[in-house]
Structures are given as C-alpha cells and as structure tokens.
C-alpha cells in the first residue's frame, strides 16, 4: 500500500541550535494507528508539528501524498476572549456544507452548537476539534495528547471514539499519548522518543520488551496491557455513561500541559 507520509532522517533544530529531533524515520500507512511515547521534552509534539507541516525540518526529507487532507488537534488552544463565536459557527468557518450532523453525532457535540466557544470545557473543545477535523474527511489525523487532564473513563471513551473514527473514516492516526494502556492495546505501531531520538519502535509487544523502553517506563507495564484490552474489548461498560461523562468529571481546561 502506498504510504501517506514518509519522513527520512528528519532533524529539527531551534534557532538557538538546540536539537529537538534527530534523524527520525517514519512511514505512515493508510488506516494505521501510530502512538508516540516518551518522556517530557522528548520531541513528541515537535514530531507531530513536522507531520502537520507546521514545523519545517532542518534536514531530511518529507514525502507527502499529494493533496493529503490532514486533521490536527493541538495540545492546547489559547482562544481569544474578545472574539464572540459559538461552537457551531466555529465549526462552519471556511466550510461550504451546512449541517455536518454525522460528525457532530459521532463525537457527541451536537448539544454544544449554541454555546460560546470559550465556554466549552477542555474535553468538549477536543471533541469539537475532532468533529471539525472529521468534517474535512482527513486521511491523516494528528493528535497531540488529546486526553491530557481527562479522567480514566473519559480517556477510555475518547480512545474508543478514535477506534471508531479509524474504522468509519478510514484515516490513519498519529497520537501523542502518555497512556501506555491505550498505546499497548490499540496501536499498530509505537514510536518511543527520547531526547529527540527514536529509541525504539515497532509493534507494541516488541516495544514493551525492548530494554530502552523498560529503562524509560520501568518494567511491570505488561499488566496495564491486560487491563486495557479488557476495557477496550466487548464489555463496553465505560461507554454506557453516554457521551457527556467527560464534561462532568473533567476538572482541567486546555492549558493543561
């Protein structure tokens, strides 16, 4: 299958000469879910920004499928307080279509349309951004820590939503996640970054056996794997709370790191 996007030896340096990414190679195939893991400051967000074409690399090659439609959910969104706009109007900005009902329903944001954008909680805003991305029929979704500050049930729901999105929209997903449970259970490929270098990559099971991974995250993460496969599996009990559970329990807004 032809790849959507291929990075060849991509390095990124800041103006002051600090290396953020060093010779990263990555191939993204259609419908693939790739997780980026690693400690803070490892370069995960930078890599997402390179994939989104927001950050030009210092060296290396980027091959992008022509007219690749990309959806991007930033880690944080600093909304201008002076701009009066409802969630619905924000969703329709730059859009020719009228009511994108399917996407609103899938992401559970239908009831938010008349709310001011600034009044949404962090979880609501992320689902709105996901809806916004989906309306554009992306072939590649780039998510930078989409569940930061969301509680466990909310996270499980969001990850279930992602699995559904991949199946229904047939898009590849690259996600920065601190949640090893999800990473191990639902990911096709894991890319572990440390100080700008890919320290290990591959199928989740391979990676979790890798010495570099173990030195970063410690042993004993295998049981997390079991817990989450259970949660992602047939029972679906977490989802029974309905789409709005995130809002009720989530205490943190988007400016959470």
């Amino acid at each position: 299958m032809p790849s959507l996007l291929t990075l060849g030896d991509v390095s990124v340096t800041t103006d002051s000469g600090v290396t953020l990414l060093k010779k990263v190679n990555l191939t993204i195939k259609p419908r693939q879910i790739i997780s980026l893991i690693g400690p803070n400051g490892a370069g995960k967000s930078t890599l997402i920004r390179v994939l989104a074409a927001l950050q030009p690399p210092a060296t290396g090659s980027i091959e992008r499928q022509p007219n690749l439609v990309t959806g991007y959910l930033p880690q944080r969104l600093t909304l201008p307080m002076n701009l009066p706009i409802t969630a619905g109007e924000f969703l329709r900005l730059g859009l020719n279509r009228h009511q994108p009902n399917t996407e609103l329903h899938t992401t559970g944001v239908t009831h938010l349309m008349d709310k001011p954008l600034q009044a949404l909680s962090g979880g609501e805003l992320r689902r709105l951004l996901l809806a916004r991305a989906l309306i554009r029929r992306p072939k590649l979704l780039l998510l930078d820590e989409p569940t930061a500050g969301v509680d466990l049930i909310g996270q499980v729901e969001f990850y279930q939503l992602l699995a559904k999105v991949r199946d229904e929209y047939g898009c590849a997903i690259v996600i920065v996640s601190h949640d090893l449970h999800f990473v191990m259970a639902a990911t096709d490929q894991v890319l572990c970054l440390d100080q700008g270098l890919v320290c290990c990559h591959g199928h989740p099971e391979e990676v979790s056996q890798h010495p570099e991974y173990r030195s970063l995250f410690g042993a004993g993460t295998e049981q997390a794997f079991a817990v989450f496969t259970h949660a992602m599996g047939g029972h679906n009990h977490a989802h029974a709370h309905g789409g709005d559970h995130i809002d009720a329990v989530e205490p943190v807004h988007t400016d959470h790191g």
């Binding site: 989104a52 074409a53 959806g71 930033p74 969104l77 600093t78 706009i85 924000f90 730059g94 951004l129």
Partner: peptide, 19 residues
C-alpha cells in the same frame, strides 16, 4: 473574512486547513 477569523482563533489550525 472567514480565513482571517480562523487565524485569529488559532494560526496552526488555519495553517493545517490550508490557509
């Protein structure tokens, strides 16, 4: 106008949208 409003909300989102 629509692109300018979108840039005001978030430049990165606008850029990824192809603005």
């Amino acid at each position: 106008w629509q692109s300018l409003v979108l840039i005001s909300i978030d430049r990165d989102l606008a850029r990824v949208d192809g603005v």
